[in-house]
């Protein structure tokens, strides 16, 4: 077995602001995608709400991450390497999404909505791909990451809509609770799948920190099980308050999960070397067994 010479160490460059970007970007893009899908890419109040909220959240995420960068004024340099870097692609997709959604508000057209939806999907996939290409961080460096981010984003987006619509006094859309319930189930499956992912030793150790009551209760019980129950009530009773509450819990659950992923599971992988010989005297070996 390889010898571990340096234990895993918490990464310190990407902090809460980076985690916020991964959450806000996902939630913003997810909001738009869910709204567009529920609206069949047609004009709707729901989509108008999403066209404001979605890009707003995404931009807020970008502002967060820009604040964390060493040279924020050079932010647009990030667009340069679309051919190779998922971070470039994230910014392009984010920019395209914001542009499409904004244009749709000014000059409504189905094409902008489809483009915005595609850009939003690309944005969340890019965010997942950013992490999955990070070879230095075992917990991120898995192929599941884009799927995880996609599902998380859609669930979050549904949560945003469920919360926002009653607050804005917009009549609820009948399908939202059902769709949201489906996305929450999918989210639970994909997060559980991530935790059960057959990664290497470093991956397993980095993700083991999830298995504490606060995480399990926060992410799975409060972030998935209880929202599902609330959504059941909402569907049954057609009370948007239950959906809104479910939305809050889903968002908190996804936020907690992503914050954990970036800040806690985000460990620089241990440094190992192949086949290192230990040194032990024969007598000691015999005595110690």
């Amino acid at each position: 077995m390889d010898a571990e010479l340096l234990p895993a160490a918490r990464q310190s460059l990407w902090g809460r602001l980076a985690a916020a970007n991964f959450f806000l970007g996902g939630a913003g893009a997810g909001t738009y995608v869910v709204a567009a899908a529920l609206s069949g890419f047609g004009l709707s109040t729901l989509l108008r709400v999403a066209s404001v909220l979605g890009p707003g959240l995404v931009l807020a995420g970008f502002l967060c991450v820009a604040a964390e960068a060493g040279r924020p004024p050079r932010g647009l340099f990030v667009l340069r390497k679309i051919g190779t870097s998922w971070m470039s692609r994230e910014l392009w997709a984010g920019g395209a999404f914001v542009l499409a959604a904004a244009t749709d508000l000014v000059r409504p057209h189905r094409g902008w909505r489809i483009a915005g939806t595609l850009a939003a999907l690309l944005l969340v996939l890019a965010q997942g791909a950013i992490l999955s290409r990070a070879k230095g961080v075992a917990a991120w460096n898995v192929s599941l990451m884009p799927s995880l981010f996609l599902v998380s984003a859609l669930a979050s987006g549904a949560g945003v809509l469920a919360l926002a619509l009653p607050l804005l006094g917009v009549a609820g859309v009948g399908e939202l609770p059902r769709v949201m319930a489906g996305l929450v189930v999918l989210s639970a499956l994909v997060w559980a799948g991530y935790l059960a992912w057959p990664g290497d030793f470093a991956f397993r150790r980095a993700t083991a920190s999830f298995m504490v009551p606060s995480m399990v209760v926060g992410v799975f019980v409060a972030g998935h099980v209880i929202p599902l129950a609330l959504l059941g009530l909402a569907i049954e009773a057609r009370v948007s308050l239950w959906s809104a509450l479910a939305g809050v819990l889903v968002l908190l659950g996804q936020l907690q999960a992503k914050a954990w992923l970036i800040l806690r599971a985000g460990e620089l992988r241990p440094i190992t070397i192949p086949s290192l010989r230990l040194r032990r005297s024969r007598e000691q070996a015999w005595r110690e067994g």
């Binding site: 340096l6 160490a9 990464q11 460059l13 990407w14 980076a18 991450v65 964390e68 960068a69 060493g70 040279r71 924020p72 050079r74 932010g75 340099f77 990030v78 870097s85 971070m87 950013i130 992490l131 290409r133 990070a134 070879k135 230095g136 961080v137 991120w140 985000g266 620089l268 992988r269 440094i271």
Partner: peptide
């Protein structure tokens, strides 16, 4: 360089 830190996450050797 914008100082985004992505390369630091990609590098397994710190």
């Amino acid at each position: 360089c914008v100082g985004c830190g992505y390369c630091a996450m990609a590098c397994p050797y710190r």
